[in-house]
Design a protein around this nucleic acid. Structure first.
Length: 346
DNA sequence: AAACCGGGGCT
DNA sequence: AGCCCAGGTTT
């Protein structure tokens, strides 16, 4: 029996009921696909619910302030997704009169939409025969066909895209695409795949050769670098503090944080005092410094390990523009900062 | 082609 | 500690 036939049957018996599977509206499908990039359903689902409630249409999203979009995205990570989501919403409203692109080629022009997302929207919403290749599809195809090309190489990307395009169901690409991803997510899992009850077992190359655990092949990634973050939590007698908006290229762009001193080595109390003397908003000011967490908090990102200390700095008054500590919850902040705000009991 | 970009969950 | 995840953009 052909691949897509078995897959279709498996999917109709095993698919999860998810909110974005109740619709073909490209706005909702686009939103769900952006949220689910690099993100598991369990993590993304509550964010999807918040977004469709707050922004029921692309017009509502386009009207919003970026900081509000980032606030709603807070904790989900890869914040360029949220910034691009907002940029694209405004583009669709202002340039395309609210009309969503209805084919792969035009979808690909949207910021934040690459090959995977364009294929997903084009197939699910418009029945276009374009195969999706996400982490699940890589895994399923590499195992089923016994392909050991590294999936995180440009050669692998081409090879698997072409293969997926060859076996996709021409009549129902939407079900095929969603089915193969769902199959990878819940049955042909990275660890402990359920081969015993798998409908593909008899024709799966990796199962036949006992190679399930060796596939897919992935090139090694670089090790995470280590950095030390010292956040300056400035508190004045009139209950004000300072938050700064992160500018530039690096992580957490356009999110807010306490003033930061970054260093390659761990800093102790004495060194912080020295560094503070030069700080513009403390120069000539009398202040006291205490350390909130004696041992640094380790915040792990994919490419960076951040050893973090929060320094509590008491001053009489904040000369520079400060914010009331009561308003601190309104700003979009990295989860690292958000956790501190909760622990500190602002 | 390689680097960069979060955070949570599992083993 | 290492690996995984419903990828895309920048360099």
């Amino acid at each position: 029996m052909i691949f897509s036939k078995i897959l279709n049957r498996w999917y109709s018996n095993n698919k999860r009921e998810l909110p974005w599977r109740q619709t073909n509206n490209p706005y909702f499908i686009w939103l769900s696909e952006i949220i689910l990039q690099q993100t598991q359903v369990s993590q993304g689902l509550p964010y999807y619910m918040s977004f469709i409630e707050e922004f029921p249409t692309v017009f509502d999203l386009a009207k919003a302030e970026e900081s509000k979009v980032l606030k709603l995205w807070q904790g989900l990570g890869y914040y360029s997704r949220a910034r691009n989501l907002h940029v694209t919403a405004k583009y669709i409203v202002k340039v395309l009169n609210g009309q969503f692109p209805n084919n792969y080629k035009d979808l690909l022009k949207l910021k934040g939409v690459g090959d995977y997302t364009a294929s997903a929207i084009a197939s699910i919403c418009f029945n276009e025969v374009t195969a999706v290749v996400d982490g699940n599809v890589y895994r399923v195809l590499s195992r089923y066909f016994g392909i050991d090309t590294p999936i995180n190489s440009s050669k692998g990307a081409k090879e698997f895209k072409q293969l997926a395009q060859e076996i996709i169901d021409q009549k129902d690409p939407a079900t095929f695409n969603q089915g193969i991803m769902e199959f990878g997510a819940t049955q042909c899992k990275p660890q402990n795949p359920d081969c015993e009850s798998c409908p593909f077992q008899s024709s799966c190359v990796a199962f036949d050769r006992k190679m399930i655990h060796q596939l897919p092949v992935k090139n090694k990634l670089n090790k995470a670098s280590k950095k030390h973050f010292n956040f300056l939590v400035i508190l004045s007698k009139d209950q004000k503090t300072i938050l700064e908006k992160r500018q530039g290229k690096g992580i957490w762009q356009n999110l807010y944080q306490f003033p930061l001193i970054e260093s390659k080595k761990e800093l102790v109390h004495k060194e912080i005092i020295v560094a503070l003397k030069d700080h513009e908003f403390l120069k000539g000011n009398i202040f006291e410094v205490s350390l909130f967490n004696e041992t640094a908090i380790l915040h792990k990102l994919t490419h960076q390990h951040l050893f973090t200390k929060f320094w509590i700095i008491s001053v009489d008054e904040i000369k520079r523009e400060g914010i009331s500590v009561n308003d601190i919850h309104n700003y979009p902040v990295p989860i690292l900062i958000s956790n501190f705000i909760d622990d500190f009991n602002f």
